[in-house]
Amino acid sequence: MLLRLEAISKRFGRDWVLRDLSFALDRGEVVALLGPNGSGKTTLLRLMAGLLKPTRGRVERGGRVLFLPNPPAFHRHLTAREHLLYDLAFHGGRGDWRGALVRFGLPENLPLAAFSSGMKKRLALARLILLGPDLWLLDEPETALDGEGRELLLKVLQEARQGAGVVLATHDRALAAQVADRTLELGVA
């Protein structure tokens, strides 16, 4: 079991964002998280990642987790090469960072402040491939990507399915239908 949520609830101040939600994910599964704005998709992803603690209930994880926020977060003063090298060093991995950059069509030595939002999204995908987590948590990965970027995303998700588990929050039902084995619909609490 890669991820298991047992009857979790989350409250911010007076408002309950999630109530009594249970969920389990295995390796090789891709699950799409659907729901309107404010239904708690991002909160749920952050709970799954362990970046938030549930007010009630339990979260169990069985592997390395990476969370891709929307928009992706990078240090604007670094170049793509530097960023990937630091990430690899912190996570203690080795990987073909140059190959990843070439594959996603990204420049090596341009400061990330000069990247467009689509380029940052691609860089985020390159980073995920490079670090190869067991559990992928993606918040609206399809936004800001052009047609070619979307193709790359689909391929990345197919690769992730080999051995890892993916939860992606999205408003794109076509994408969900295309890649997801299951969907989880959140309503406004």
Binding site: A49, G50, L51, R64, V65, L66, F67, P69, A73, F74, H75, R76, H77, D87, F90, H91
Partner: peptide, 15 residues
């Protein structure tokens, strides 16, 4: 800078 760029989470997710 970690907070401005939103990268604090990345550091905390390092196993």
């Amino acid at each position: 800078l970690e907070v401005e760029d939103g990268t604090l989470d990345d550091l905390l997710l390092v196993p």
